[in-house]
Amino acid sequence: MEAERLLAQAGVDSPRADAELIAAHVLGVERGRLPMVPLVDPPVVDAIGQLVTQRAKRIPLQHLTGWAAMGQVTVDVGSGVFIPRPETELLLEWTLRQLRDVQRPIVVDLCTGSGALALAMAHERPDATVYAVDNDPVALSWARRNVEARASAGDTAVRLFSGDVADRMVFADLDGMVDAVVCNPPYVPEGTRVAPEVAGYDPPAAVFAGEGGLAVIRHVVNCAARLLRSGGVVAIEHDDRHGHSVPALLASRRVLSAVADHPDLAGRARFATARRGSAP
């Protein structure tokens, strides 16, 4: 496939998948149904070629299609908001398993960005009350757009707030009441060289963090420790170099136990979890 070759030459990590997703987007079909599509007209071929050319310039695929997936939902994305990654679905799946026997759970998504993780939780658990917060007004505008779209589609509306996880008053009225805290925070150590799709398009404040990438995560741990009820769980995505440091931060809080770290599909350390015990 010529599109795959061009994308591979440009250094795109998944050239075949991206070429197929572009074709599926233009044709308006699911990727798995591409082999069943008959020969297409030249204008459609040209449209596919134009998007492949743009992708070869390392413009993110999600910016070309205008959406990204998280679990069973899709959200609108574009300039000024972090693009959700497939790896975060592992954190989503883990959290849903922990809530399987919890009726009407309360869930908090910190550093929500586009709202993808919160909306995926709300979709899978329509009985849940899901809160989400971010401190960036542009990200919140995308999240608000996505929350409204999912509510119109029939999903339970996520309760969206502006706030900073470093503020001890964020969701203070929920202290000790939350069943699950989830977070995909900024965690890449400052100065790290990243892919062109990240460097040129993801907001730096949503990607990089000080203190070796742990600055925001420290606040997330503290926030989770006060929000969670006894038995509640927290799941925090982190850099693949944080497989020991983030679990150590969780373990440093005496109210948190059952600390564990989890790999992504490539075997790299990807997210850490813990459960709140009884207050000392």
Rank of each mutant, 00 (worst) to 15 (best):
P280G: 10
G176C: 05
V26T: 07
M169Y: 12
R5N: 04
Q50H: 13
R97W: 06
V216C: 06
G267V: 10
A24V: 08
P280Y: 12
E148I: 04
Q50C: 07
G78M: 10
A157T: 13
V52R: 04
R150S: 09
G191V: 12
S230Y: 05
W142K: 00
D134Y: 03
A8Q: 13
I217G: 04
R150Q: 13
H244K: 14
D167W: 07
I217S: 05
A122W: 04
A151G: 03
D155A: 08
V75R: 01
C111P: 01
L140W: 04
A266Y: 08
G28R: 05
V198D: 01
A47M: 07
A3Q: 11
P38V: 06
V259W: 11
L99R: 04
V108R: 00
A274M: 06
K57I: 00
T129P: 00
V107H: 02
L92D: 01
L51G: 04
A157V: 09
R270M: 06
D264H: 12
G210W: 09
D46Q: 15
V255S: 14
S114W: 01
P38S: 08
G191W: 11
D173V: 13
T95V: 15
P126T: 06
H219K: 03
S245T: 15
L96A: 10
I106T: 15
R254M: 11
A166P: 01
L256N: 09
D18N: 08
D261Y: 03
V77H: 10
P84S: 11
S141A: 15
S14R: 12
P263T: 13
A274L: 05
P15F: 07
P35L: 08
L34M: 07
V147I: 12
R253L: 08
A24L: 05
R270D: 09
E93R: 14
V44C: 05
M70P: 03
D127M: 07
P280H: 13
D202A: 07
A10L: 08
F271G: 00
G80K: 06
L110D: 00
A235G: 13
Q72F: 09
A248N: 11
V75E: 00
D264M: 09
D173A: 15
R145C: 07
G32Q: 11
P60A: 09
Y187T: 07
N135V: 10
L119A: 01
G163A: 09
C183W: 02
H244E: 13
W142V: 00
S162H: 14
A266H: 12
V26H: 04
A269Y: 07
E2Q: 14
V234D: 03
L99W: 03
V73W: 02
A248Q: 12
T112Q: 00
I83P: 00
S278M: 11
I59W: 02
A258E: 15
F271A: 00
G213Y: 07
T129M: 12
P43L: 05
E20L: 14
D179S: 12
H123A: 11
D261I: 08
